[in-house]
Design a protein around this nucleic acid. Structure first.
Lengths: 233, 233
DNA sequence: CTAGCGTAGATTTTATACAATCGAGGAGTC
DNA sequence: GACTCCTCGATTGTATAAAATCTACGCTAG
């Protein structure tokens, strides 16, 4: 199996750990991440920390202001909608090009991920859920010849994960997602690609609707004036 | 005038200089960028160079392999089509949301950019062309509330610039683009937003067609060592 | 009492130095 | 003769330390 825990460089390891920490809410939006503190926390020098922060900035997790530092990005309603709109636009396009090229090995890979997904749900492992979900979606698109779109969607999936974590441990939603993934595999196996693409949009929209429901209930979801941040404190 | 030449940090300056060098073809695709050499060339330490390379990797200009170094990305037909498909998909969407919100100040800004565009064309300043073109497109989308899409399109425009440079000093195409930009402004001023969006797609497709024509005639886009860069159907 | 200026502290940015890693080429062995 | 292993050189990755920059606080002057 691929060993995602093995990193070839310290910076990459810090990227993962910091990202997980942000996803888990250890560093809430607005938190300033001081290089010294991070270096101390993870027992490394400040150089890997710096590089990790830059990487996370490229991924959209933090905002870096020169000479001022890195601040964990705010979550905004505008961005939620933007991200999910983009996913609805791009993912079906990837699937349509990728799915017809699937061989049996690709389906086997999907099944394997699906199995791990079920296991993670059963174990209630919220941290793994988003990771495996992203893995599944990307596996659907491996055969597409759209390298740029693929990397964009990979980033979008990570951002989605961050938002989705707001509704922590929504096991019901996780179960639904798992069933929908299974349905996607079935439709692709049956060669019903257009149907699968449409179903995929529904799947993404369902997640978005779920998320918006939680955000709306949890309080003022970003004023309409500037619609900045989701109040979370 | 805006002062884009002033950078708040060395790393940012190196990013710009390296990017320009790659765009200009000083470092062709496949070139390995050694940190030592870059540091020496620009008279700085290796730290800013490293950070610049990471930034450029996020922008898609180089590919970094741990412990091996940074290699200037290859240009592939797949990516050309992917990038332009994405632009055709995303840019009209931005325009539709942004244009109806334009105030007079926004149109004035567009006119100012347009003027600089004309000047650059008259001066035959190929290096500035892509920069101002990107500035114009992004100015069209300032009023859109789609932060993620905006940053994605900004990156796509830079990549487009890199491809477009292949047909160096195609002044005819530049003139056409300038006229089409003017038409876009007119349509937005007149409030014909749907028409403008459609026209925008035509504008992007025209650039792509022009580019593909040049690529097809000049043989291959990059090194055709492996099938990836010449994959066509 | 308020506004402006200057200084001190903290934090980031950059430089220098050291350690780890990869690839190539040669010696030794089967 | 071909293969394996190992050592060396080159390059990248990391740590430590110095330089530059920003923020905040206090002081002085009006």
């Amino acid at each position: 199996m691929t060993a995602p825990l093995k990193h070839r460089t310290l910076s990459a390891a810090i990227v993962d750990r910091l990202r997980q920490a942000i996803l888990a809410g250890t560093y809430p939006a607005g938190t300033q991440l001081r290089q010294d503190a991070m270096a101390e926390t993870y027992g490394v020098s400040r150089i890997p920390v710096r590089e990790a922060l830059f990487q996370l900035e490229a991924e959209g997790f933090v905002r870096i202001v020169p000479h001022k530092g890195a601040i964990v990005s705010e979550l905004s309603l505008d961005e939620i909608n933007d991200v999910f709109d983009l996913r609805c636009l791009l993912e079906p396009r990837l699937l349509s090009q990728s799915a017809p090229r699937f061989a049996e090995a690709d389906f086997a890979a999907l099944d394997a991920i699906q199995a791990r997904f079920e296991a993670a749900i059963a174990a209630g492992d919220v941290g793994q859920w988003g990771v495996i979900n992203a893995e599944f979606h990307m596996a659907l698109y491996t055969k597409a010849r759209q390298p740029r779109t693929q990397s964009i969607v990979a980033a979008l999936l990570q951002t989605s994960d961050r938002y989705t974590r707001l509704q922590l441990s929504n096991t019901a939603a996780m179960g639904i997602a798992e069933q929908e993934h299974a349905e996607l595999i079935r439709q692709c196996r049956a060669g019903r690609f257009a149907e699968a693409a449409a179903f995929l949009v529904g799947h993404i929209e369902a997640v978005r609707a779920d998320l918006l429901r939680v955000v709306a209930r949890s309080g003022a979801a970003g004023g309409d004036t500037n619609s900045r941040s989701v109040a979370l404190e």
